[in-house]
Amino acid sequence: MTTDAKDAVKMKTSLLILLAIVLTVIFSSVAYGLVMPMTAQEVLDEFDMIVLGTITDKKQSEGNAPLYTMEIEEVVKQDSFGMSKSVLAIGCNQNIMHLGTPCPSYEIGDRGLFLLVGNNNYEVSFYSQVSKLNCTSKEFLANYRGLEYGFFWTQDGQSKTFFTGKQIDMHYNVNNRDMTEKDYSVMFSANSAKFEYSNVVNGTVNECVGSKMITTSFVPTVMGTYGFNAGSEGVYGISIIDYGSTPLAQHKAGVHGQDTWCRDNLILILKNDNTKPRADNYPACVAKDTGAKLIERNWGFVPPESNAFGYLGGK
């Protein structure tokens, strides 16, 4: 990668550095290509030229990066490109070890959305995507979704506090990077010491669709700590609470201290106890004035995930 192109990439992605890093550095024969998630709009904003096209030529000498010729089908970005029917762009060097995103290699006949960095001397971004299908530029762009969760769960449209007796929706994102038609079969499960739920969801991701969000639902009947699973992803330690239950009842049911639900505008305080993880310390739901006194006396503390002075419950 040329110095100008690297500087351009770093400058254009500086505002998104907290999400991830797009950076290529050649040092001691190691190139770092750590890719941040991008939305379709970010792709349109960040790259100097975007074309829908086909690789018609590839030239590569030993030890060097390939030089691609792309026949342009559609210029998605850069109206000033003129009437040219093709564009040259340098790929990444396969002979250099890439940490993070693998170095993509394209062959003659590959068709897709090519994201280019530079001015006249273009380089192909790691984000470029090809497919064997005749997908449109809009369909390729729709595949860029940014920092999208692969597996998550909601109740009443929120993902913070969960109660028994109400429907919980588990959502799983089936990825389809090559955009070919794909059948899927995803096993969902949710369980605690006294409750079990499982379901298999089958379906198809259509051609030129980069991913599909699927959902299954269940109603938990037992308060406690649950594990959720979908496909190859899983998580344990999700607290589900009986509405109206006391902190003591929640504690005995295995609900994590920091997840304790407080009603009637009471705030959550956890007792100082160094014998167990802080998140599992004994909970108390108290008035604000009482909470301030307990903190002043070093009896307890406000959980880190609460607001400035405890999570205000309510329903």
Rank of each mutant, 00 (worst) to 15 (best):
V87G: 11
D110M: 11
R111Y: 10
V186L: 00
H98T: 09
T136G: 01
I108S: 14
Y127S: 04
R145Q: 11
T161A: 09
L113A: 05
M97W: 12
S80E: 14
I72Y: 09
G109T: 07
A89T: 07
G118P: 03
G146E: 07
G146N: 08
I72W: 08
H171Y: 01
R177E: 15
F188G: 01
Q167N: 09
K132T: 13
T154K: 09
L147Q: 13
L99K: 13
L115Q: 13
F163Q: 05
G146Y: 06
P104N: 05
N175L: 15
N143E: 10
V76M: 06
N95P: 06
D183E: 14
E73F: 06
V76T: 03
L141T: 06
Y149V: 02
M97L: 14
N93C: 09
F188S: 00
Y106P: 05
Q155A: 04
Y144S: 01
G146M: 07
K182I: 00
F151P: 00
V124E: 08
L88H: 12
N173P: 00
D178L: 08
I168L: 05
V186P: 02
G100T: 10
F81Y: 15
M170C: 01
F126T: 12
I72L: 10
N119Q: 15
S131P: 03
Y144E: 01
D183G: 05
G109R: 10
K132I: 09
K132Y: 10
G109K: 08
N175D: 15
Q155L: 03
A142F: 03
G91D: 12
F81D: 08
K138H: 11
K132N: 15
E74M: 11
A89Y: 03
S159M: 08
W153P: 01
F151S: 01
G146C: 06
D110H: 13
N173H: 02
D79R: 11
D156N: 15
F188P: 01
K182R: 07
C92W: 10
P102D: 08
V130I: 15
A89G: 05
Y144K: 01
F140D: 09
R177L: 10
N120V: 12
A190C: 07
K77I: 09
G91Q: 07
S137K: 10
Q167A: 11
R145P: 00
T161G: 03
R111A: 12
F81S: 08
I96S: 07
V75G: 12
I108C: 14
D79I: 09
Q158L: 07
T154A: 06
N134H: 12
G91W: 02
Y172H: 05
T154Q: 15
L88V: 08
F114C: 03
G109W: 05
H98W: 11
L113Y: 04
D79W: 06
G112L: 07
S185W: 00
S131R: 01
A142T: 02
E148D: 09
G150N: 08
Y106Q: 08
M179L: 14
L113I: 06
C92G: 15
E139F: 05
L133T: 04
K166R: 15
E148G: 02
N175Q: 15
T136Y: 03
